[in-house]
Deep mutational scan, measured.
Amino acid sequence: HNGKLCKLKGIAPLQLGKCNITGWLLGNPECDSLLPARSWSYIVETPNSENGACYPGDLIDYEELREQLSSVSSLERFEIFPKESSWPNHTFNGVTVSCSHRGKSSFYRNLLWLTKKGDSYPKLTNSYVNNKGKEVLVLWGVHHPSSSDEQQSLYSNGNAYVSVASSNYNRRFTPEIAARPKVRDQHGRMNYYWTLLEPGDTIIFEATGNLIAPWYAFALSRGFESGIITSNASMHECNTKCQTPQGAINSNLPFQNIHPVTIGECPKYVRSTKLRMVTGLRNIPSIQYRGLFGAIAGFIEGGWTGMIDGWYGYHHQNEQGSGYAADQKSTQNAINGITNKVNSVIEKMNTQFTAVGKEFNNLEKRMENLNKKVDDGFLDIWTYNAELLVLLENERTLDFHDLNVKNLYEKVKSQLKNNAKEIGNGCFEFYHKCDNECMESVRNGTYDYPKYSEESKLNREKIDGVKLESMGVYQILAIYSTVASSLVLLVSLGAISFWMCSNGSLQCRICI
């Protein structure tokens, strides 16, 4: 991952900044910058967002509201009850120091605090018919004063009620008058409520006091790749198909172990950190130390980045220098085999997901714990399936590479015959000098055995068991695999060879 928040398929997220979902939807004055928000790819909250409900109280069923919003990608904020005409018999300019803005008392931008007009609070009834052709999110509140005197001074009615009804919602609220500790300079409380109004449905408000009335509502448009994440990451000019709280993932790998919460087309989250597919040879310690064997393909974004291909070729060293050249036929066979294998694994496992966190309130801790156990169970199954699949494929890959290298080895052996000696570690020792032209003939299969047989015969008789390297004779190393990324691999195959001279070296080696 890149540690950044990015656009998702070209669409920017909605960053709530210092506000949370509650503050944004109710219209906390400190969240005025969010009022123009219309569309987004996903919503970003920060872990310690401080601006929620400015007048103390709870947004009821907040967790369910977050779940609903996680599939919303755009909205239209509109005046559901026009301020100047909807409440002619009531005062609608209630403000509070708890919702101060720029040093002055204020109130929510989407709600109206209705109080008595003169000395009376006549029963009010108002309704709205949803003609938007889509779901409408309606929010309101109920004020709970701290004393009967406060109730009387604001609403005149000691036994007030609030009723809200639609086809799918029907509740009646009565204020709970009680002494409470002071929070944000208030002994009173406000509880906030919401409902989704279906197209064509009607919502009716009736009250004799204590109503925090809707002013603006939201017509919602769903987008199934949307979601809500909690993150401290910063926004950058970048684009992605998959976003996590820790950063964007741009990967076609089937798995990731970065974060379980994802938005967009994302690899499946697994616990494993070692889900690797081999593309090189079986481990040979001396070669492995030099980083030549054991190439791997990573299938977990965050564990290993991208696929690494092994390729086969020849390396030689003689009086004229040293050089490398790919054996294109065996390399292409290996590439085709690995590509098919990788595609097979991805096809089997690479279903892209959006995974969002589930919200539970403080009273639902047991449910949250149960949900976590269920999620953990599914996660263990996914991890096991992934590891088992790759384990089985790896064994076949190792066998496949062994065969490829063996074929190259036999190709060289059949040409050199007794003009060189096998020394048991995949290397041959020449009994004759071999210049670049000679080396090329070994690589392309045109090695002239009779041409060098007499010199080889004489050297075999002279050496008589002495280690060949100390006599200045020449080696050919018969097994060799270097490691390159897919891009470098293609470039390498396009070149005939490249040279690395070893000044004054008397050794001649050709490596497979």
Rank of each mutant, 00 (worst) to 15 (best):
D327F: 05
E454V: 10
T354W: 07
E440A: 15
G494R: 00
K365R: 15
D402V: 07
E387T: 07
Y312H: 06
G313A: 00
M439E: 03
V390N: 07
L477F: 14
K467Q: 04
L487A: 14
E237Y: 02
L292K: 00
N252T: 08
V483S: 03
T339P: 02
T351S: 12
L403T: 14
E395Y: 15
T279P: 03
I381D: 05
L370Y: 06
D309A: 07
I249A: 10
Q288M: 02
S234H: 04
D375T: 15
N343M: 06
T383S: 08
T305A: 03
Q246F: 11
A334E: 08
A325M: 09
T351E: 00
C438V: 05
S481W: 10
P260K: 13
V466T: 11
S414T: 13
H259M: 01
S486N: 04
D448M: 15
N394I: 09
S502Y: 15
G465N: 12
K365N: 06
C501N: 02
D399R: 07
Y289H: 13
N404V: 05
K373T: 10
G357T: 11
I287G: 00
R366Q: 09
G321N: 12
N333Q: 07
I335D: 04
R276L: 08
G306P: 02
C238E: 08
S322Q: 14
V466G: 02
K365C: 11
K348V: 14
Q320W: 07
A326Q: 04
C238H: 07
I510Y: 02
E301I: 11
K365M: 06
V466C: 05
M471C: 05
T305D: 11
C266N: 10
K433D: 02
L490Y: 04
M439N: 08
S456Y: 03
T279S: 01
A297D: 00
K341E: 10
W311G: 06
L408K: 06
L490D: 00
T482C: 04
R271F: 06
Y431T: 09
N503T: 14
M235T: 12
D327S: 02
L379V: 09
E368S: 13
G310A: 04
R460I: 11
C511R: 02
